[in-house]
Design a protein around this nucleic acid. Structure first.
Lengths: 257, 257
DNA sequence: ACCATTCGTTCACCATGATGAACAATTTTA
DNA sequence: TAAAATTGTTCATCATGGTGAACGAATGGT
């Protein structure tokens, strides 16, 4: 079913929702029209439908649109059906106790990652992010692990089409070197990040197996001064162990169904 | 802008999402087609678009669709912008301490209510529900308060078109009597429920004012044996007081912007 | 105060998008 | 095991849905 029909208006609607979701104060029709290269009457017609279903709310005084409660309802339902976060939570907590850094759980959603859960480090200074946040696919250890999970041609094609954005001066932007990192992650089962996504930050990520329709991983993140080469090796070992532990639990949960 | 154009395909897409959100195991194309009275190729084209944007996930083995991570991302963003729940939370906690029953915060979303926050009673036996749950607009004290907030013609029209479903043997289904309840709620600022929605349960609700684009209310719910007539009057007084307190805070927050 | 610009809204037009029919694949029934 | 029924997928068709042009309202600049 290559190149199957995809209702274009639905895709435009979600482009609109994504733009509106990035705005704090709401967005108007002309602003959305310009930003998304859509006609104003197209935006107008789609927003009317989104408002009708409660996916956006129109402020009658400013004529701007913000996200509506229906998205919250659907979002809650979507989140409540992601079993992996319950399955993974105990292992994430145990991992955080052992390594004393924040532990993230995330999934790939098209060309970015979405954070599903976090067990924050108990240290006063720690790295965290809101659950639901998006991270670029090319960013850091987690990104490499996700790209290692996909067929090599698909990963290569993404690199070719999108290019690797430079996040820091340490970002690996050379496609051949980046593909090597991905192959290494595929071989070892984990990936590392040494200030490639955020300056002063190191990370280790490992993929979770056995999730039928989701591509999932956990990763540990900490400040570089706290993570020398020895601790980095320790993080890799522990993260890989926890990812396998979670993968086993998933397999057990599936068999019990 | 009466009868303005609303992109029909977008509305169909959200019908599909709503149906899928009620399913635990995912739904197939023919099932959705029958349930929603849409053509199979229409459902097919819309689901392809929804999958492309990550709003649904297709299970390749069962060919069923479940809600995708994009909805979770948008839902998180929608929820994070609803200021009222932070503003209301302290007053809800204080109200729960005073009345010792669960306190709900919700908003109207088209023709139903959505729970945004709950401060659960500390008693062992209590009433609660998942945040994000939907409640029918005609149900209980909260429903009356929301209908009291809308123009009388709009409320009357809804009753005429939808009819009042019978939830319990105490449900007020007579339209004239129900309109009287709504008028009373409008006059007094609060509404009550005496086993009209759930057997054995009483509730009091009060509207929150000053929310520009949302229609919001708080309500207290408890088991009837714990709530005699005297306590019911006490609940009404306290709930109304807390709703006004929250309304004042909203006004103050708006003025500070 | 007036003019220019921008925004939101309406409407007629037409071609793109939604869909019904047909077909292939899969599942169910006998 | 074979036939019937159902599901998912493809494709040609055409009319409905999306949209460009025009207009009214609001805002900004002089």
């Amino acid at each position: 079913m290559v190149n199957a029909y995809q209702a274009p208006t639905v895709k435009k609607a979600f482009q609109i929702l994504k733009s509106v979701s990035k705005s704090r104060q709401g967005m108007g029709i002309s602003e959305l029209s310009k930003q998304l290269f859509l006609g104003k009457s197209t935006v107008f017609g789609i927003l009317n439908a989104l408002e009708n279903v409660g996916a956006v709310v129109r402020d009658p005084t400013t004529k701007t649109y913000t996200l509506g409660v229906t998205l919250f309802e659907l979002g809650r339902a979507a989140y409540s059906r992601i079993d992996i976060k319950e399955i993974a939570r105990p292992a994430m907590e145990a991992l955080m106790e052992r390594v004393q850094e924040s532990v993230f759980l995330g999934v790939r959603n098209k060309e970015h990652l979405t954070i599903l859960d976090i067990v924050e480090s108990m240290q006063d200074l720690k790295i965290t992010a809101p659950v639901g946040s998006r991270i670029p696919l090319f960013a850091g250890a987690a990104g490499k692990v996700f790209m290692a999970s996909m067929p090599e041609e698909q990963a290569a094609e993404l690199i070719r089409m999108k290019g690797i954005p430079r996040f820091t001066k340490h970002t690996i932007i050379n496609p051949m070197r980046f593909m090597e990192e991905i192959r290494k992650a595929r071989r070892t089962g984990y990936a590392t990040d040494d200030e490639e996504y955020i300056p002063g930050v190191r990370a280790v990520a490992a993929a979770i197996q056995g999730t039928r329709t989701l591509s999932a991983a956990i990763w540990v993140v900490g400040f570089k001064p706290r993570i020398d080469a020895k601790k980095m090796a320790f993080l890799a070992e522990e993260t890989l162990y926890s990812a396998r532990e979670i993968s086993e639990k998933i397999k057990t949960a599936d068999a019990a169904r």
